[in-house]
Design a protein around this nucleic acid. Structure first.
Lengths: 179, 179
DNA sequence: GGTTGCACTGCAACTAGTTGCATACGATAC
DNA sequence: GTATCGTATGCAACTAGTTGCAGTGCAACC
């Protein structure tokens, strides 16, 4: 499991509240590790109990008390230990894969709408990632280590979306050619 | 959720016992939808209660009673209904992504072993998929509809592994170039 | 003839993730 | 002035998935 670790990394990059974390998980980090706000709040409680994070109650601009979390040395050590452990190769689960095999017992054309939707979603996300790449990691520029690491993560997202997009196109072509 | 649906598809392809299903999920179907035997047994019970499958107790070669499951009309109808529903675009979760961003606060070289392991795992799986493709879907041969659909599913696996493999290589190169 | 291995089924307890709701405050909309 | 929206935190109940264990019975090993 890596939600704890993803939270540690995000808080090392910048301390923040549960709500802020939830928003980061809707964007940057969330592109390779999704989590809902309920999950985040619950995990933060556990992490605080385990001593991975400290919290300070801080009034925000609207004078309401919010809880700002910071990583402790213990949390950082736990991250280091986890980074040195081997992890499982990524495993994909594909609804469309199941549906395609199911289509042998039904009408393959019934899948056109869903595959088209996936293609569009992957295309949109790919476009977004490419924008990030152009904006944050322009070619020919020398980047420092943290930026190069961030770029690598974005590269994974780009390759991932490219792969699915190309596959969706392939499926649409094939489905169109079936009797 | 698609475990029920994946089981329906597998049982439509060929009726079988829970154990046989578990083995199929270790191979073919499992390449795009993993499930443990405990999950499968539990789900089969629920599906039988819901009338999606029928079971007949059949003695195997060793005269022990095993339960062979077959899809009912209701199960088949449920599959058809699900196939017509839109599904979520696939979402990836990557331990390595988290680790790479974490490496900014630690030693990036500590990741070399893990990334190498992922590269090897993806390369091995890609080789396996390519073997399947050459064996079952030789180029230039005309295939019937179910086979073409199966081939498309395998193509997804090939593209997926290619993508991750290329990314791992990219990461290893970059990590080697860091100060 | 005991051990090991595999086919086969399953329970119990756990962790992870989802869904739906509740609450509270300030700002902006109309 | 009240309705609605965004920030912020959280509980409760559920579904999904994992881990560890346990039992039966055949076959083959040696």
């Amino acid at each position: 499991m890596a939600l704890e670790h993803a939270i540690v990394v995000s808080l090392l990059e910048k301390p923040g509240t549960g709500y802020e974390l939830a928003r980061r998980f809707d964007r940057s980090i969330g592109f390779f590790w999704a989590a809902s706000h309920q999950q985040i709040y619950r995990t933060l409680h556990r992490m605080a109990a385990d001593g991975w994070v400290d919290l300070t109650e801080v009034p925000d601009e609207a004078h309401r008390v919010t809880k700002v979390y910071t990583v402790t040395d213990a949390g950082r050590a736990a991250l280091g230990a986890w980074m040195r452990e081997p992890s499982e190769p990524e495993q994909h689960r594909s609804d469309l894969g199941v549906k395609l095999r199911g289509a042998a017992f039904d009408d393959p054309a019934a899948l056109l709408a869903d595959v088209t939707g996936h293609r569009d979603a992957h295309a949109a996300r790919l476009a977004l990632y490419r924008e990030f790449e152009e904006r944050d990691f322009p070619a020919g520029e020398t980047l420092d280590t943290p930026r190069r690491l961030q770029h690598l993560v974005l590269r994974a997202g780009i390759r991932y979306e490219q792969g699915w997009l190309a596959w969706c196109e392939e499926v649409l072509t094939e489905l169109g050619e079936l009797p």
